[in-house]
Amino acid sequence: MACVMINGLGLKDVEVESDNKQAISLSVSELVPPWKIRAVVQDIRHFANEGKTFFQWIRRSANKLAHEIAALALRQKLPCNWVVNLPFPLVSLLENDMNESL
């Protein structure tokens, strides 16, 4: 989803962070992925090569904001303007994530 959004917005030199170490490893390696997820991994690699997208693993303890945003979006509880007007509870998570990544 991140790659599709990056491509749709025409962004370049973007860093995608995830706490899923296996997903990041598959996205950046030359290894042949398991057949069940091969098409998805190949699409990610394609988008990465086109748009100069970089992938980085980050500890879950420093990635709570992304988890909460995904959960809110899944429940359709994320305000449409959350990017420019981050709700206070999410600001607090962002600050915690920044401190955890140091």
Score class of each variant (00 low, 15 high):
Q22K: 09
Q22R: 14
Q22E: 15
A23M: 09
A23H: 06
I24H: 09
S25L: 06
S25R: 09
L26G: 05
L26Q: 05
S27M: 07
S27A: 11
S27V: 07
V28Q: 08
V28F: 02
V28W: 09
S29Y: 00
S29T: 06
S29H: 03
E30K: 15
E30D: 15
E30V: 13
E30H: 14
L31N: 12
L31T: 14
L31A: 15
V32N: 15
V32G: 10
P33R: 05
P34V: 02
P34Q: 04
W35I: 09
W35D: 12
W35H: 06
W35T: 07
W35V: 08
W35F: 00
W35R: 09
K36H: 14
K36L: 15
K36D: 14
K36R: 08
K36N: 14
I37Y: 00
I37W: 04
I37P: 00
R38P: 08
R38W: 04
A39L: 14
A39N: 13
A39S: 15
A39G: 13
A39Y: 12
A39R: 15
A39I: 12
V40K: 13
V41G: 02
V41H: 02
V41E: 01
Q42S: 10
Q42R: 13
D43A: 12
D43C: 07
I44P: 04
I44V: 06
I44R: 07
R45C: 06
R45A: 05
H46F: 09
F47M: 11
F47L: 10
F47T: 07
F47C: 15
F47H: 11
A48E: 12
A48K: 10
N49R: 15
N49Y: 03
E50S: 06
E50V: 08
E50A: 06
G51F: 14
G51A: 08
G51P: 10
G51T: 15
G51H: 13
K52D: 08
K52A: 08
T53C: 04
T53L: 02
F54I: 15
F54A: 09
F54T: 09
F55E: 07
F55N: 09
Q56G: 02
I58T: 07
I58C: 06
I58Y: 04
I58E: 07
I58L: 03
I58H: 02
R59D: 12
R59Y: 03
R60L: 07
R60V: 05
R60A: 13
S61L: 03
S61E: 11
S61F: 00
N63H: 03
K64W: 02
K64G: 10
L65H: 00
L65K: 01
L65T: 05
A66L: 01
A66C: 01
A66G: 04
H67W: 01
H67C: 02
H67E: 00
E68H: 07
E68K: 07
E68V: 02
I69R: 05
I69Q: 04
A70C: 07
A70Q: 07
A71Q: 15
A71M: 08
L72S: 03
A73P: 07
A73K: 05
A73M: 01
L74Q: 14
L74T: 12
L74F: 11
L74P: 04
R75G: 12
Q76D: 10
Q76W: 05
Q76Y: 02
Q76C: 09
Q76E: 11
